[in-house]
């Protein structure tokens, strides 16, 4: 019989194998990206107790103070201050909440809707697909920044309005890519067999198609977080993003731009935060994708 290798695994040790393999998964978590993300999450959740200063306290006498390792730097402002004398370190900590939560909300709302639309569009095909794809093309053809400007002027500048206006754009990107993947998965034989069995369509979508496009969704989501952080900063720069004085990384980068030659720290540290967050998310996303794939899990 060809299954001798299977028989070497006795029922009692199958449990052991499972425990051991889940331990080894935990051991392979990428250490640095996970640590960075954990720190940022702690900042986002508990920032008001960690930050040494208020992020909005203006102190004009102490403006453009350099970081602590410069001669004029003091431990009171570890990473220096901006043009209004606000503490950069405190603003970075409090800014984590705005930048990360905005991205997560948009990913959850826009991504969720986009995945659902993409699955339906790709699986239904025909006229449903054609109509939905034309709709998506209309959204993708619109200039994000311009539409956001008009929208925010119309409904008012707030955290919620930024989420509402960015979500449709994200949904369109997700829908387009998920639809493409769905088109290829639905032609596989296991989908045909599910139809022969009489599996309801919603179950085919959730149990057969969705798990097989999940890799793509994870990778896209981690890439889009970085994109969203940058997009939010563009909107803030144009005056339609998260309203000041709430600190957001993108806004801080924009603020420091004109002082880049004289006070680099205003721009550099929020920029590094964006870089660290985006890079960590991408590396973490890669790990998550590999872990979720049963073919790679046992390697």
């Amino acid at each position: 019989m060809a299954n001798t290798t299977m028989q070497t695994v006795a029922p009692a040790s199958a449990w052991l194998v499972r425990v051991r393999s889940s331990l080894s998964v935990a051991r392979r978590v990428p250490k640095i990206p996970t640590a960075v993300l954990l720190v940022l999450m702690i900042f986002a959740l508990f920032g008001q107790w960690i930050a040494p200063h208020s992020p909005v306290a203006v102190d004009m006498a102490n403006s453009f103070a350099p970081p602590v390792w410069h001669e004029e730097g003091t431990a009171n402002n570890l990473l220096g201050t901006d043009k209004l004398g606000r503490d950069i370190f405190s603003r970075l900590i409090r800014g984590a909440r705005v930048s990360l939560s905005l991205s997560l909300f948009v990913i959850a709302l826009g991504g969720g809707v986009g995945v659902a639309l993409g699955l339906i569009s790709g699986y239904a095909g025909g006229k449903v697909d054609a109509v939905m794809q034309r709709g998506i093309e209309v959204i993708l053809a619109m200039p994000t920044i311009l539409v956001a400007l008009v929208f925010v002027f119309a409904v008012g500048r707030s955290f919620e309005s930024v989420i509402l206006i960015l979500s449709p754009f994200l949904a369109a990107r997700f829908a387009r890519i998920v639809r493409g993947e769905t088109l290829s998965v639905r032609e596989r034989d296991f989908v045909a067999i599910a139809k022969v069995i009489g599996t309801p369509t919603w179950m085919i979508l959730l149990r057969h198609i969705l798990p097989n496009v999940f890799n793509t969704i994870i990778v896209l989501a981690t890439l889009e977080v970085g994109h969203l952080i940058l997009l939010e900063s563009s909107l803030s720069f144009l005056g339609v993003g998260v309203p000041p004085p709430q600190p957001a990384w993108g806004l801080m980068v924009a603020d420091g731009r004109e002082f880049l030659t004289s006070a680099y720290w205003i721009t550099l540290f929020p920029g590094l935060c964006i870089l660290a967050a985006v890079l960590s998310l991408n590396l973490f996303g890669d790990w998550l994708r590999d872990t979720l794939d049963p073919r790679r899990r046992q390697l």
Binding site: D189, F190, I193, R207, H208, P211, N212, P294
Partner: peptide
């Protein structure tokens, strides 16, 4: 290879 869902 195509008739069994690799994720199940």
């Amino acid at each position: 290879y195509s008739s069994l869902n690799p994720r199940m």
